[in-house]
């Protein structure tokens, strides 16, 4: 587990070209995303393997929640259950009280491996359009959605290029833009910044926070990087391993807006990352 110190790198300040939405959060008594006693077991009988055992946590509307845990803990399995790709073995996950049984229309997912989640035969813009085709949008709205998503991730100039012509960080931004153009209410990201360099990673983390602000999205990020989780999240769900269970939900009380340099050098930042780290390091 890397324990990075606060970076001394300059952080580019990306100006938003997006129409700023008023910063109102949907207030609701039922949580947006409700995971209750979720369990996932593969196989049956003696060969069965329980990957997730009894996970319970909630994500409120407009929140950024990070899920951290040691590698191999079953984080990806959890996301696949939430995205409706795998059925849960018991318990349930629900959006606004409705149990998830297939991919929910209000959800988009950014995958860990941008290399294998973008269509290499489509240009950047066509990658964005593919999930929108069946919505049968008017041409003007289709264009507007793609334009604003691309400009939100700073890739307006690359819309006619192919993903494989771009760097890893840019490809992951294309994957994020594809999710944005889909206009989800809930955005789920599976270790989205795991395979990009440190500078790009900081940029993408800030992009993630900007998306939350500009699009008023509910965001769930799975990561194994504790610093990243504390930096991004309103709350951090700490998972223990084999089988996965919730060790603790840590409320992060760092001031907004977060900033790569000042936030990471706060004493509270150090305290909270230590709190999360000691939960993970503690023998289960």
């Amino acid at each position: 587990m890397s324990a990075r110190q606060a970076p001394a790198l300059p952080i580019r300040n990306r100006k938003s070209t997006m129409a700023q939405q008023p910063e109102t959060r949907i207030s609701a008594t039922t949580p947006r995303l409700d995971v209750a006693h979720l369990a996932k077991t593969y196989g049956s009988g003696e060969k069965s393997r329980t990957v997730i055992e009894d996970l319970t946590f909630t994500v409120d509307a407009g929140e950024v929640v990070c899920i951290v845990g040691p590698s191999g803990v079953g984080k990806t399995t959890l996301l696949k259950c939430l995205a409706g790709l795998h059925p849960a073995s018991s318990g349930r996950a629900a959006i606004d009280g409705r149990t998830i049984s297939g991919p929910p229309p209000e959800m988009a997912l950014v995958f860990q491996d941008y290399n294998r989640s973008l269509m290499p035969w489509l240009t950047v813009r066509k990658n964005l359009i593919l999930p929108l085709r069946h919505l049968k949008l008017p041409a003007a709205e289709l264009k507007e959605r793609c334009d604003s998503a691309l400009s939100a991730v700073g890739l307006s100039h690359a819309d006619n290029q192919y993903p494989w012509q771009l760097s890893g960080g840019m490809q992951q931004r294309v994957a994020i833009a594809r999710a944005l153009a889909y206009r989800p209410e809930i955005l789920i990201m599976d270790e989205p910044f795991a395979s990009v360099d440190a500078q790009t990673r900081f940029d993408l983390e800030d992009l993630c926070l900007k998306i939350r602000k500009d699009f008023n999205m509910t965001i769930l990020v799975v990561t194994h990087d504790i610093d990243e989780a504390v930096y991004l999240a309103d709350r951090v769900v700490v998972l223990g391993s084999r089988p996965a269970r919730v060790l603790r939900v840590v409320d992060v009380d760092l001031p907004a807006p977060r900033d790569q340099i000042s936030t990471r050098s706060l004493p509270d930042f150090a305290r909270q990352r230590t709190e999360v780290l000691s939960l993970i390091k503690r023998p289960a």
Binding site: W121, P131, R133, H134, Y182
Partner: peptide, 29 residues
């Protein structure tokens, strides 16, 4: 064709026809 690509197609709720014509066919090309 990688499972990841098919997961993308399912998460974004592509129709069966779209999955065949716009994902599997070009990927297998």
């Amino acid at each position: 064709v990688s499972n990841d690509l098919m997961d993308v197609a399912r998460v974004y709720r592509l129709s069966r026809k779209e999955r065949v014509l716009n994902v599997l066919l070009p990927a297998a090309m």
